[in-house]
Structures are given as structure tokens and as C-alpha cells.
Amino acid sequence: MKIEILGTGCAKCKKTKEIVEQAVAELGVDAEVVKVEDINAAMDYGVMITPAVVIDGDVKIAGKVPSLDKVKEWIAK
């Protein structure tokens, strides 16, 4: 599983990354978490506001910090 955190390195982006990494750790899944700061890469997904979370190419959220439970739900699916 590949989880991309799209963002510029701001506070919300960092928080999002922390939550995703916590969810991965708690679920014990084998996932690659990648932080992507390139706006063009974000726009390739249609994402125009960050932070955003993309799991295996599927945009899950944009412009908001997700809850831990929500991230776990996405990963478990």
C-alpha cells in the first residue's frame, strides 16, 4: 500500500503525516508513507488545496486534517 501526503510542509500537513504514520503503526500494515511537496503532483490528482491524503492513487481528503479513526478506516478497506 502506498500512502501519499500532499502538502507544502505546513503545520496541517505535518499533523496529517503524523496521524497517517500513527494509523499505519497501530494497524501494523505494510505501507509506504510518502510526503509529496510538489504542487504539480497534487494537481495531477485534481487536488487544489492541501493537505491531502492519497491511498493507492485514490484521493481520500483535501484541505483538512483527517481523524485517526478515519485514516484507519481508509487503510482497512
Binding site: 503545520a11 496541517k12 509529496v36 511537496e37 488545496i49 493537505p51
Partner: peptide, 19 residues
């Protein structure tokens, strides 16, 4: 394993004023 990719910093961020 976490990995950072640092490139252009031009994304519109939700940390700024109301979007």
C-alpha cells in the same frame, strides 16, 4: 518507511486564511 520528497513549494495550503 517514511520518505520526504522536496520540490516546489507552491501548493495552496489550508493553513492560510480561509480558502
Amino acid at each position: 518507511m517514511a520518505e520526504d520528497i522536496k520540490m516546489a513549494k507552491t501548493a495552496k495550503c489550508a493553513c492560510e486564511a480561509a480558502f
